[in-house]
Write a protein that binds this DNA or RNA. Structure first.
Length: 604
RNA sequence: GGGGUGUUAGUUAAGUCGGUUAUAACGCCGGCCUGUCACGCCGGAGGCCAGGGGUUCGAGUCCCCUACACCCCGCCA
């Protein structure tokens, strides 16, 4: 008997043998995916990352091999040697290797397996809790293997794409100085500097800009970023970005490079030709029509802004709407076509849904033949004039349903944005993964540079303080900061923000005016960003860049339903790792060593 | 910080109006079987019904609390 691995090297994967290989003597390694023991003949589906191959052990050919094969159970790790044979009339069309099978002449069991805590099957049939606890088993499942293999390809294609175009792959520190504002940072105590802390980088932002100031001209990095914020379906505390920065460019140059990358990924991995250039939409339009800056354009159903109509009619007999606009709130509607056929129960469920997002209720009206409203608490009081104006603005037809939301701007936007997507799902307007027309790329452009912070009564950077304002808006920096728009852009796909970036401020004089508008003193700016401000003063080139969410890109590319399905070792919603138990306890001695004292008192 | 959904053999689920021995399938163990591919047949083991408290003659089932997982709001430039 020849020995596996030392003498018998693997000749093929479990996914590649075809009719062309019939007659070959092959060696395969893998896991027992399934067994069918017929006594005199034992059938095994052998699995590796490439696929499945049926292996047959027959009693009258190699009795000792057949006997050992009787011991095989699910997930045993084995090596086999055998001859590739045609399956003739017994071919299995469901299997890529279904036309052949391997008649085993030798078998070794590298390792037996206890019964696994859940079956290793394509379809998930266990709780996410169990899957994460035994993630190494979960990852044996073919869909996850395929996803991570795709992820590796995205990495590879991205590196090639940028390298071919003169971008340098340069690294940036993870352990950085804490700067206030933006995402909450994970903190790392410094043993050598008592009482001081590093922050884990939430992005390489400042360093990549400094690379430009150093003259590296074009930079990219596939880089891990860390943010200590609450998790979501599409948010993990550590995630990967495709980070890019370029000197001597305007917005369109960045778009061009990124569209090229995305098109290459979609072409190479899915065989899909995306139309270029991608659609562009002003931020203000996106907010008005969709309630957020990441609209899903695979379906229509836009919001209708009714604020001005309500104002013009002095409330139109609807006190709640009147109050809303008086208090600087907004009024919006969505028209649900009669074809949706929503029942009262359906609408009540919708009301529950929006209440979960901070809405007080869900005002609605069904449109009668004569344009009057029915099934509506508003119907009695509203003036016919305002009703007609709203009907016209919404394009409401008899049988249609109008859903309203009014109040504080942020709440109305959030509720209506989520409601729009929720309705589309309910109505089946969103195409299945992989079907035609399912890739709606969009650049959302020209957002305001500042947003007003009600709490502190100041203007704050809507994104970060180093975004270049539109030249024509510069005069308003001092007089009306709210109307200053900037060269900031988000790349959106099917309702997900895939990435964002900006053309940066490289002019120290304008930078100073921006800080002033935000009420940040020279002193404060020096403390926070002194090194960057200095760098700006010493020949900083015009530059701009972008960061793409690598995980989200792979998620959409593969049709995965959760970011956790494209991250090999993800955290739970509470940020824990169910497999390793991280984050874990440390003892007092370790804490003293880094000069940290915990105020947490564990319950006894 | 807030709202919602869930937790029953190893796994996936069923469990009626609160009623006495908590079912089934897959997996596991033993036996049989040479053309299966969701192989089949016979037999068997396997349960702190997430944890704690309460209501009740009686709780998997009703109530409260806690834990964990998931979804959403806030948060995430």
């Amino acid at each position: 008997m020849a020995r596996f691995i030392t003498e018998l090297k693997r000749t093929h994967s479990c996914g590649e043998l075809t009719k062309a290989d019939i007659g070959k003597d092959v060696v395969l390694f893998g896991w027992v995916n399934n067994r069918r023991d017929h006594g005199g003949a034992v059938f095994i589906d052998l699995r590796d990352r490439e696929g499945l191959t049926q292996v047959v052990f027959e009693a009258d050919v190699r009795p000792e091999v057949h006997e050992l094969a009787g011991d095989l159970r699910l997930e045993f790790c084995v090596g086999i040697r055998g001859t590739v044979v045609s399956r003739g009339g017994n071919a299995n069309p469901k299997l890529r290797t279904g036309e052949i099978e391997v008649h085993a002449t030798e078998l070794t069991i590298f390792n037996r397996s206890e019964p696994t805590p859940f079956p290793i099957e394509d379809k998930v049939e266990t709780s996410e809790e169990k899957r994460l606890q035994f993630r190494y088993l979960d990852l044996r499942r073919a869909p996850l293997q395929k996803t991570l293999m795709t992820r590796a390809r995205v990495n590879h294609l991205t590196r090639n794409y940028f390298s071919e175009r003169g971008f340098l792959e340069l690294e940036t520190p993870f352990m950085v100085k804490y700067t206030p504002g933006g995402a909450r940072n994970f903190l790392v105590p410094s043993r050598l500097n008592p009482g001081k802390f590093y922050a884990l980088a939430e992005s390489p932002q400042l360093f990549k800009q400094l690379y430009m100031m150093s003259g590296f001209d074009r930079y990219f990095q596939i880089v891990r970023c860390f943010r200590d914020e609450d998790l979501r379906l599409d948010r993990q505390p550590e995630f990967t970005q495709i980070d890019v920065e370029m000197s001597f460019v305007e917005q369109n140059d960045v778009f061009d490079v990124i569209e090229g990358l995305v098109c290459k990924l979609w072409k190479e991995i899915l065989g899909v030709e995306l139309p270029r250039p991608f659609q562009r939409m002003p931020y203000a339009e996106s907010m008005a029509k969709y309630g957020n800056d990441k609209p899903d354009l695979r379906f229509d159903m836009p919001h209708v802004v009714l604020t001005d109509i309500v104002k013009a009619h002095g409330g139109g007999g609807v006190p709640l709407m009147h109050e809303a606009v008086q208090a600087k709130g907004i009024v919006k509607a969505i028209r649900v076509p009669a074809s949706a056929g929503f029942s009262r129960t359906d609408i009540e469920k919708l009301e529950e849904y929006v209440k979960g997002m901070g809405a007080k209720g869900l005002a609605r009206a069904k449109i009668a033949e004569n344009g009057e409203w029915t099934q509506s608490p508003l119907a009695k009081n509203i003036t016919p004039e305002m009703r007609a104006a709203i009907n016209a603005a919404c394009g409401a037809q008899p049988g249609d349903l109008l859903l309203f939301q009014f109040g504080k701007e942020n709440m109305v936007h959030t509720v209506m944005a989520n409601l729009r997507v929720h309705l589309a799902k309910k109505m089946g307007l969103i195409p299945e993964y992989g079907s035609g027309g399912s890739w709606r790329y969009l650049w959302v452009v020209d957002p305001p540079l500042f947003e007003y912070d009600e709490e502190s009564k100041t203007w704050a950077a809507a994104h970060h303080a180093f975004t270049r304002p539109h030249d024509e808006d510069l005069p308003y920096l001092e007089t009306d900061p709210g109307r200053v728009n900037c060269y900031r852009y988000d790349l959106v796909l099917n309702g997900f923000e895939l990435g964002g970036g900006s053309i940066r401020l490289h002019d120290p004089a304008v930078q100073a005016r921006v800080f002033k508008a935000m009420g940040i003193s020279d002193e404060e700016a020096r403390v926070k960003f002194g090194f960057l401000l200095d760098a700006l003063k010493m020949g900083a080139p015009p530059h701009g860049g972008i960061a793409l969410g690598m995980d989200r890109t792979v998620m959409l590319l593969t049709g995965a339903e959760s970011l956790r399905d494209v991250v090999a070792w993800p955290k739970t919603q509470k940020g824990t790792d169910l497999m390793t138990g991280a984050p874990g306890d440390v003892d007092l001695k370790q804490l003293r060593e880094v000069y940290v004292k915990s105020t947490f008192e564990p319950q006894k």
